[in-house]
Amino acid sequence: MSDALLSVDDLRVSFATEDGVVQAVDGVSFSLAPGEILAIVGESGCGKSVTAQTLTGLTRSANSRITGSVTYRGQELIGLDDDGLRGIRGEEIAMVFQDPMSSLNPVYRVGDQIAEMIRAHRDVSKREAQQRAVELLGSVGIPNPEGRVRSYPHEFSGGMRQRVMIAMALALEPAVLIADEPTTALDVTVQAQILRLIADLNAERDLAVVLITHDLGVVAEVADRVVVMYAGQIVEDGSLDDIFYTPQHPYTWGLLGSLARLDRPRGERLAQIPGQPPSLLDPPPGCRFAPRCAFEFDRCAQPPDLAPTESAGHLDRCWLDLDEKVRVRS
């Protein structure tokens, strides 16, 4: 995509372990446009968080191997040295992690932590950085930011701590925000508030967002486009309407079928996807979803490609033809 802000092409990430090589991400490609909210969804262990962390070099280690391409505004990030990555992290691409309590230092006031991060990247005084911290806390909806800037992390609720992390991520006005399961530990009311905050920031700042989640209900609230991952691969990629109204992959059907819905009969049991995801030490040789798929047939022994559907920009990785999918879904 020529106007892409961030492009990922054939990204592969593996880790050497005592049991063998884990292929955590296997040939992932996607792009992110300015102002777009892209959701990456899938079960735990499907590779979505590893994909997100690799975008800013957080998976680099002695036992990891990373190939493929990640470009930001045309600049290649794979292989970029540490100094180059420091200029990207926070400045251009910021990340909000799942558990804010483990990301914030419990013995420092939140304002000091935000100010320290600002001064690490900007030539400003301590007073100026503290004032910027107050402005940031106010911008993410924390009441009385002038007072709360002196509070410690344990004095905030889970939702407010996540707002602090979002404020810190926005401190250097990045163009891309990666939110890795930002609502997992929060109750549904607070989840809705955090999602609304992300949507508002996206609209106000033209902020591009990569939202990592296992919850399709979260996706429906804010996403423009959805990438569905399974066992380290993308199995479907399309617009929000494509994924929710004309899904093409049996795994996506299973995820949607497991959602609680108000229009279902009272007492009806939720559908389940049978079995467990495969080990990424030794994934199935053909379609990786085949061992759990109710529609498996002989051709599934061969690995399918991620191929276009009849809808422009909608891709899926399945051997079932369109007529078969229509029959199954009707």
Score class of each variant (00 low, 15 high):
R161I: 05
T184A: 14
A169H: 05
F156N: 10
L170M: 14
A175D: 08
G158C: 06
T184K: 07
V176C: 01
Q191E: 06
L170G: 03
V176E: 00
V190E: 03
A199D: 14
A167Q: 06
I194T: 12
E146I: 13
M165I: 08
L170Y: 03
A171F: 12
E181V: 08
I198Y: 04
S157G: 12
V188F: 06
A185N: 08
Y152N: 05
G141F: 03
L186G: 01
M160V: 02
R196P: 09
A185K: 00
Q162V: 15
L195T: 13
L186N: 02
A175K: 15
P145G: 05
D180P: 07
E173T: 11
I178E: 00
A175R: 13
Y152C: 04
A171S: 15
I166Q: 09
P145Y: 14
M165Y: 10
I142F: 05
S157R: 14
P174T: 08
Q162G: 05
L201W: 04
D187W: 08
A167M: 11
L172D: 00
A169N: 03
R196W: 03
A169E: 08
P153E: 08
L177P: 00
V164I: 15
S151C: 11
P145C: 10
Y152L: 05
G147S: 15
A185M: 04
T183H: 10
D187V: 10
V190D: 03
T183Q: 06
Q193C: 05
R163E: 11
R150N: 15
V176F: 02
V176N: 01
A175Y: 11
L170N: 02
I166S: 06
Y152S: 04
V149F: 02
T183R: 06
A179I: 03
T189L: 10
A199K: 15
Q193E: 14
A192Q: 13
R150M: 06
A179Y: 01
Q191I: 05
A175V: 11
G158H: 08
Q191M: 06
R196D: 14
A199G: 12
H154V: 05
A169L: 13
G141R: 07
P182T: 09
R150A: 07
M165H: 11
L195F: 12
M165L: 13
F156H: 13
I198A: 10
